[in-house]
Nucleic acid binder design. Sequence first.
DNA 1: GATGATAGTCAATGGTGCTTGACCAATTAA
DNA 2: TTAATTGGTCAAGCACCATTGACTATCATC
Lengths: 157, 157
Amino acid sequence: MKRKDALEDVKKLQASSLGYVLIRCGQLFNELGMRAVNSEAGWPMMREVHARLLPYLENPEGVRITELARSLGVTKQAVQPVIAELAEFGAVRVEPDPDDARARRVLLTEKGIAAMRHGTTKLVEIDRRVARRLGTDETRELHGLMTRLFEVLKALD
Amino acid sequence: MKRKDALEDVKKLQASSLGYVLIRCGQLFNELGMRAVNSEAGWPMMREVHARLLPYLENPEGVRITELARSLGVTKQAVQPVIAELAEFGAVRVEPDPDDARARRVLLTEKGIAAMRHGTTKLVEIDRRVARRLGTDETRELHGLMTRLFEVLKALD
DNA sequence: GATGATAGTCAATGGTGCTTGACCAATTAA
DNA sequence: TTAATTGGTCAAGCACCATTGACTATCATC
């Protein structure tokens, strides 16, 4: 019986942790989102790698490959195939850096921006399904707190 | 200029989405948690696979391999190496199913439960750092809403 | 202008997480 | 009791994501 009690204890501890619940929620939402995006015809398969890379491409002037690699915490060689894939699809364009002839800047094309909008729209649809069950006020409240949490977490690293 | 505006638009849309912000927060928290757990000496490297498997082992009676595979959405062959690894470390024990001589049940050992507790404790520590910046009341409020969200998301699939 | 650092590419390689296919043993149903 | 299903294992292989190492071209410095 002692083992069972210890297990119950841990479950309680998990439920008491903001981070634990947050991580679980994030995974569930991510799964729903990826499924929604990939069930759509016309777009090529979106993988986790793409989702991880895209946030760093938000600079309208483009980003250097080295910079991307550093942001992601991997080597530049690791980034290259992903860029190539996105470029082939037409989501990004790679052009020479005007300030440095060695460097090249990766930047989102209109099509890439449209793809991001499409993905986000899918998330918003799920948002609505959630809000229907959670309540509009609660959802709004949650969204506000989460936005603040995001800032806190970015500063925490 | 049109492209830049479109990009700003998408950013706004992302920020307006509960799911988008949630996913980003979840990733950040997950990263912090994994780093905290793995920086601790004495425990073997924890990988995402372990983290994904563990929640399904919470049944004190153990879980069948087939059941685990179905829960994770992969084949049973894919689960086996992970089980083997956890078993070698001593976090789980595999014993014959009393009701079915073909089946085997995977169950957490005391050591496995301790490992889960250890990991969760690390998350709780991060919780506290967050609460210090976000505010105690806000954190409590967020935790409550997130817990409800978790239930909603589990039911949404 | 020589030197060392930096941006990027090419090539080879490795680990991980998964798959399919073939199989055995136990269970369930006909 | 035979046939079909189910739980699990073994083996081979594949895709993906990352690595290290070697190289070229440009830049920055002295």
